[in-house]
Simulated scan of single mutants.
Amino acid sequence: MKLTGREKSELFFEGVVTVILLLLLNLSIVVLINSTIAHNPGLQSGIFQIKRSITIGPNNYQLWSYENIFIGLMLIADGFVLYWRLIRRYKQMQLRHIISELHYIAAGHFDHRIDFNLTGDTQRVVESVNALVDSAIHSMDEEREIERSKDALITNVSHDIRTPLTSIIGYLGLIENKQYQSEEDLIKYAHIAYLKATQMKSLVEDLFEYTKSRQTETPLAINRLNLTAMLEQLAASFELEANKKHLKIEVESGTQPIYIEADAEKLGRVFSNLITNAFKYGTGAKNVVLQAEQRGEEVVIHVTNDGQRIPAESLGRLFERFYRVEESRSKATGGSGLGLAIAQSIVDHHGGYIYAQSDDEQTSFVIHLPVKHDHPLTKKQSDMIN
């Protein structure tokens, strides 16, 4: 920290004033002591005896003089006082500079940091202030991101609801105004309106489920469950739909059942979303495989299909809300865009993590879950290389 010319002058005058005051104090003390000794013969005799008893060398050279010793001690004390006064004033100037920097930051210069290199507690104050500013800026950025996220959520939900709602109103309007030629047209219009209403209901349910999954304070119903049996039941429940799409769905989990601690309902929603996702977007797929294996204190589950590859630039965005790979956005397959975001939130809430891998041979959604719910996992970057 550099001192200004005015501050240097302040330090200089502080030193001069302190020296003058100390000299006056020393002179007053010397006068008082000499006056006391002069009026006390016994004290004079005692000092004389002490002076004679302290000698140096074979010639009994007398070095001691109470005046010299007293003056020496007073000079040492004066030096400490002068040093203390100057250091105290210097630290006050440092504090003044720190306060000035804080006012500068508070005025809106949030990218500014105090770059003083000080010592002791003052340096710790500077580091604490910088850390506090960093934390405040981070919190402000998070709040802005949350606001942007809310705005995007409202925009996307409004768009996805408005589209089917427009169709519903349009076809019901045709029915209301009797603008149909036959009963077949009436049934057709009502059926289309019903399908669009069902699409809206699915979006609202997904949005509600996503909101619930994001609320980390909502407790999970943790129980010990047989993961192998769950995957087999899910495969059986999707078998009819798989046959309609000319797909084969199967489970691979070894001969021994795998047990984990988890919320069965929430975890079932994750696998259902991933299987549904494979059915909708696994263009050209013939097989969907649910594979589970235990690796020490974690369980790894793959939901794999052998369909069209997901572009590399889309893999990192699959779990964003409302994100869809552009090639898959169609009236036939376009869902709410919340399925994978819901899956990620639930897996995170269980202390695990999820990611996607895709190549020309197959696309896999990989889930890592802890065997014990109270032992959350740490993401391994080596596992997540696509």
Rank of each mutant, 00 (worst) to 15 (best):
I98W: 05
I98Y: 02
S100R: 07
E101S: 13
L102H: 01
L102K: 07
H103V: 06
H103M: 07
Y104D: 05
I105K: 04
I105H: 03
I105E: 04
I105C: 04
A106K: 08
A106I: 04
A106G: 02
A107Q: 09
A107D: 12
A107W: 03
H109N: 15
H109T: 06
F110M: 02
F110G: 01
D111V: 06
D111W: 07
D111R: 11
H112W: 07
H112N: 10
I114K: 07
I114G: 06
I114M: 12
D115W: 01
D115V: 04
F116L: 11
N117H: 15
D121I: 11
T122L: 15
Q123A: 09
R124F: 10
R124G: 09
R124V: 05
R124E: 15
V125A: 07
V125R: 03
V126D: 02
V126L: 02
E127I: 01
V129T: 14
N130F: 05
A131R: 10
V133C: 04
V133F: 08
V133P: 02
D134E: 12
D134P: 02
D134Y: 05
D134F: 05
S135Q: 08
S135P: 00
S135W: 01
A136R: 07
H138E: 14
S139N: 13
S139G: 09
D141P: 00
D141I: 08
E142T: 08
E142G: 01
E143P: 03
R144F: 05
E145C: 03
E145T: 07
I146K: 15
I146N: 14
I146Y: 10
E147F: 08
R148N: 09
R148Q: 09
S149K: 03
D151P: 00
A152E: 13
L153K: 09
T155I: 07
T155S: 14
N156T: 01
V157L: 14
V157R: 03
S158T: 13
S158I: 00
S158F: 08
S158H: 07
S158K: 10
S158Y: 02
H159Y: 11
H159P: 00
D160S: 03
D160C: 00
I161R: 13
I161F: 14
I161V: 15
I161C: 11
T163R: 11
